[in-house]
Design a protein around this nucleic acid. Structure first.
Lengths: 317, 317
DNA sequence: ACAGGAAGTGAGTAATTGCTCATGAGCAAG
DNA sequence: CTTGCTCATGAGCAATTACTCACTTCCTGT
């Protein structure tokens, strides 16, 4: 077996070993025998299969506590879709759990035989979710990016979610060849008049569902870390009452979009209508509490994937 | 935590433990601490989550389909050994993939330090597999041909697998200096009484493993093309319900050896006992579907090396 | 051709996990 | 109240898995 192309051989073997281990339940010793390698090598392949994310694990059980929290959030904030995953108290990761749950929900949409327009924001959480997606053939769907992927310095942003998604999901995808923020409202109009951007804007308005990250503000905000926003601008925004941002759109503590000049410079696609589409936020963690609370309170998002601890904070707020 | 409804509590806990273990990657000790139970209980919950299928594991790699098909075939037809290689939709070859996989399996047997008796059939597929073998020193093994290599006209048959094998593998090899088919049952007895043939017959009965091709019937059957069988005889056989042949032995659509006079004229070594030995068929392709299905159904072979498309046909049949 | 480096390997060992067993709690029937 | 049953539990131990280290192989760039 497996003596063809050379490059993928190791991953193929890893896949085979991983399958035998996780799906077929064989021991690594057996796998080593079957594949004619040493036990240690078998172990390495199994662990490679895991670290290369060839093996996807998912929990298929509505945990009561999470279900209750989800139901509570749905009622309290009038959300369409809520998913709460168990908290991992020992972990400082801001994505573990959310990423898997987010991927599962994205996958659910992608499995629809009806053509769908999926809108995708950006950010670390969303990137982690998209990285969990299996490869799928979805020629019937279209996927549009809600935010530009160009940094202040003209380079492509790192958390370039739509391209990662295109790698896994075979569907037409529409990136936004723009910076997140234009220099002025006028410049934004010019940028938006480009035909490529027009397509994205039109698709964004038609989207059936949007998956977005929720950004907190402050000196350590993701927008600053990634170089989209300078510290002094950030300070101005928080002084003006900004509590968080989604795709660059700033909102205050009640979840109302900021009326100042800043949002007129945001070059992102407007969020799809909350009446017609699902706008699902993915976020968890202490630092996001304020931004999340504002977003659900003001109906910036009408769907939420978060963890138990964050959910309970939102319920007690 | 987790102390609400009573009935599902255990499964909920199992789900939570399973999530922490498989998704979050914590150890069972950590889970025990977090959930306030003993390590053993944590282990039980994790294992419960698995056995209750709360945790779904899946392999995201093209090889996944092959491994699943192989497992499916093994269960469905009670086969000892199944290998499924990816189909190459662009190729019309009846051997690509199979040959490499077959060679790897033969090699695995040859690497055994214990003396083995390997039996080899004939045919294009097997020839291609044997051509993939590296040169090996295997003085401990013996290799016996299951079928004669003499055509109707007295010439040596082209697909003379055992001699090709002897070129690569240094082991004692025992050809069958016979035609595939005797003129009558009596002639077969005479032929079989030759001492050289006796040796082959004896070895065939002792074989630890046999590798055989699977022949389809009909006007274009390999047996006809190679001049072992005339067209009118072939027509008689299909009328009598023959579905395929292995080493000349004809079997019907249920995989039962044909009882008519034809099989009494087949001069091949009888196939080794399916109870004691592995009889591994190598075949793929649309034209072999019927013959293969009959062979696995009736237990003519208990091992199979094929491709994905053929495997899925056998599973859907 | 050869030094340097990345990647793979097997051995050995520590850590983790799986299994069996003896025990005791909870409960229904007698 | 006792008996007999099921089921969960923790202990102890065996099996399995993960990791480290020293060594080899195979490139790569002089």
């Amino acid at each position: 077996m497996a003596r063809r192309g050379e490059a993928n051989n190791r991953l193929d073997d890893a896949a085979r070993a991983g399958w035998l281990y996780y799906v077929a339940g064989r021991t690594q010793d057996e796998i080593a025998t079957v594949m004619g390698i040493s036990r240690q090598s078998a172990q390495r392949l199994v662990s490679l299969a895991m670290s290369e994310r060839l093996i996807k694990v998912r929990l298929d059980h509505p945990i009561a506590a999470c279900l209750e929290a989800a139901a509570g959030l749905r009622d309290r904030y009038g959300l369409k879709h809520v998913e709460v995953v168990p908290s991992d108290p020992g972990s400082t990761s801001t994505t573990v759990g959310i990423a898997e749950a987010g991927a599962a929900e994205i996958e659910r949409w992608l499995k629809s035989p009806e053509p769908q327009v999926l809108a995708i924001g950006t950010g670390r959480t969303l990137k982690a979710a998209v990285d969990q997606l299996p490869t799928m053939e979805c020629p019937q769907h279209r996927i549009v990016s809600l935010t530009g992927n160009i940094g202040l310095d003209g380079s492509a942003a790192y958390y370039n979610v739509i391209f990662s998604m295109a790698d896994a999901v075979k569907a037409r995808h529409f990136p936004m060849p723009l910076p997140v923020l234009a220099a002025s409202a006028e410049e934004r109009e010019v940028l938006h008049s480009q035909s490529l951007v027009q397509v994205a804007l039109k698709l964004g308005a038609e989207a059936n569902v949007a998956f977005v990250g929720v950004g907190e503000l402050g000196p350590d905000a993701p927008l600053c870390q990634d170089g989209f926003l300078a510290q002094d601008e950030m300070a101005d925004l928080t002084r003006a009452g900004a509590a968080g941002e989604i795709c660059g759109w700033m909102f205050d503590h009640d979840g109302a979009l900021l009326s100042g000049s800043f949002n007129e410079r945001v070059a992102s696609v407007p969020l799809p209508s909350r009446d017609k589409a699902s706008v699902i936020g993915l976020a968890k963690g202490r630092r996001k509490y304020e931004a999340l609370r504002a977003a659900v309170k003001g109906g910036i998002i009408n769907g939420l994937i978060t963890d138990e601890a964050t959910a309970s904070h939102l319920l007690n707020a």
